[in-house]
Every structure is written in structure tokens, then in C-alpha cells.
Amino acid sequence: MGGTSTKDGVLLEVRDLEMSIFADGGNRIVRAVNGLSFTLRRGRTMGIIGESGSGKSMTSLSILRLLPRGARILGGQVLFDGRDLVSLAERDLRRMRGRHIAMILQDPMVSLDPLYRVGDQVAEPLRTHQGMGGDALRARVIELLGAVGIPAPESRFNQYPHQMSGGMLQRIVGAAAISCGPELLIADEPTTALDPTVQAQYLDLLEELQQRTGLALIVITHDLGVAARLCDDVIVMYAGRAAEKAPVRTLFERPAHPYTQALLSTLPGRRAPDDIKVDAHKRLPTIEGQPPDLAALPPGCPFAPRCPRADAKCRTEMPPEVSLATDHSAACWYPTT
């Protein structure tokens, strides 16, 4: 995109995004995203971390405005290269999808139409957005398949999804995503049971894609380890809000929000090796209780019912986002400083 912004310029700015899902004919309002703001610079990698129901996936779908049934964006802006995607006409937004903003969905095994050849499915964005066709298109697709590390791309072009392994399909989906040279790639982390080797390959792929094209990356994940491995900046989400935003190193070394601290402490198996099974009575630190019901959020801080630091104020008043340092903030009345 021939914008005037510099390499370090802001690519995406989300301001006070609010999204709700109206279920049961509007009787149940699930408040999925509640006033989320963040900024992503060109070429950077942002991790959005949260458990199920934290609003991390809904945030990524809101950016592309691919909302589930009954969902509505109630407020806020999504500024991509200065244009507000929330108020953009559907036609114009469609021209952004796949061309300037690409996305990789959770499960590569079901992300491709089983009835069409994989080559054709990688070709579709090029056909749609750049009007390519014929031999030039075919050559470009084969080039892309080779670029994402698929051996013998000419013969793979004509295969169907069911003839390929999960790792291969992941690469095909990656090739389709970067085909038009997008500035932003949103990667929804696979949540289904996954082999560590396949997961590592997936993260390698994301890294390769980024290095190849210099795109900015948003990784949606439940695992802080993914953030440690891949991200420059991290947003920890809880109940549709940003509990904490920080550069990755700051987040691991000086977490300010009690939820972030608790999450870091629950990571199993990442203690010193000699700790393992030395003490049979040793137990993993836990976060007691359950995440809140998004259709009946408490008035104060949503984490208050599970928070060891919570007092009366936390239970009645929503904490504001407190800036702790450059690029580091936490939504907490009593952040660790």
C-alpha cells in the first residue's frame, strides 16, 4: 500500500472497541469486547493472550468485521493505515481482506474447501484482488508454494486438501494468506490438541512469513510461551478488556496486573529442573474460581472475584488503565510497580 507512513509508523490503531453478541433474540447480551484500545506498528508482532471467553478471538474477528451471527460492533474505531474499518462500506472492506489484512484461522485441516485443488485456493485472492489469471497466476502460485516450504510445488498444486498432511495444509493456508502481500497478518492459534512439533513448525512458519514480507503480525493465543517465543508486545485480555499491555520482556519481568502474575505462575513444568518431583507435596499455583459470565459482568473489576488483592473499591468501580512506563499499562487499582 503506497502510504506515506514510515517503516516504524503506526499500521493499526484500535480505539475503544466494543462488541456484543445478542443471543436468544436479544434477551442475552454477551459482552465479548469491552472498550479495547491498542496500537500496532508496521512490522511488529503483537500477542493477544487470554483464556476462552477473554474476547481475544472476537477482537481479531472484529478487526476484519467477520462477526458471528448476532454480533454487533457497538462502538469504537479500527484505524488501519488511517482508514476506519468499522465505518467502511462492506464492498470496500472486502477489498481490504486478503489484500491488506490477511488471517490464518485456528484449524488448517478445515480451512480449505475439500472440493477444490489447493493451488486454485491459493490463487483465489490473486485472481480477486489483482486480476491475475492464466499461466502468470499459476506460476505465481507455484512460487508462493515454494516460498512457504512446500517441496515439489508443481505437483502439489493439483492436489486436494484430503491428500495432504496437517503440516502441509498449514503451509498452504499460509501461502494463501500472504499471496497478495498484506501489511497485517492475524494468526489465530490452533486450540485443538496439537503436537509440540507441529506447533513449533507453525510458529516457525509465521516467523518466516514475517521475515519474508515484513508484515505486522497479531498472534491470538492462550499460551504465554507463544508470546515469549514470538512477540514484541503483549496484551493480556480478561473478560473482553485489556488487563495489561506491555513489551514482552517487561511483561515477563515486571508484570503489574495480578491476573498476569497469576497466569505466569500457573505455567506448568517451566520451573528449575531440579524442582521436578523433589517434593511430593509441591503443588502448582492456581487461580481459584471461574472466569466471569460475559452476559452478567460484575460492576467493578471483572477479575475482582478471583483476585487476592481485591477490596471493596475493586468490586464496585471499574479500574482505569494506568500507565506505568512507556508502552506499559495495567487496568488495576493496585498494580505492582
Binding site: 476462552s52 490438541a193 492462550h222 499460551d223 497466569l263 500457573t266 502448582l284 492456581t286 481459584e288
Partner: peptide
Amino acid sequence: VSALDVSIRAQILN
């Protein structure tokens, strides 16, 4: 615990 969230996972393992 594969289908469980991180914060719940530790409870079940304990």
C-alpha cells in the same frame, strides 16, 4: 487437561 483453560488446568493437575 488438554481441553481446559490454563488457569483451570493447574486445578485439575493438583
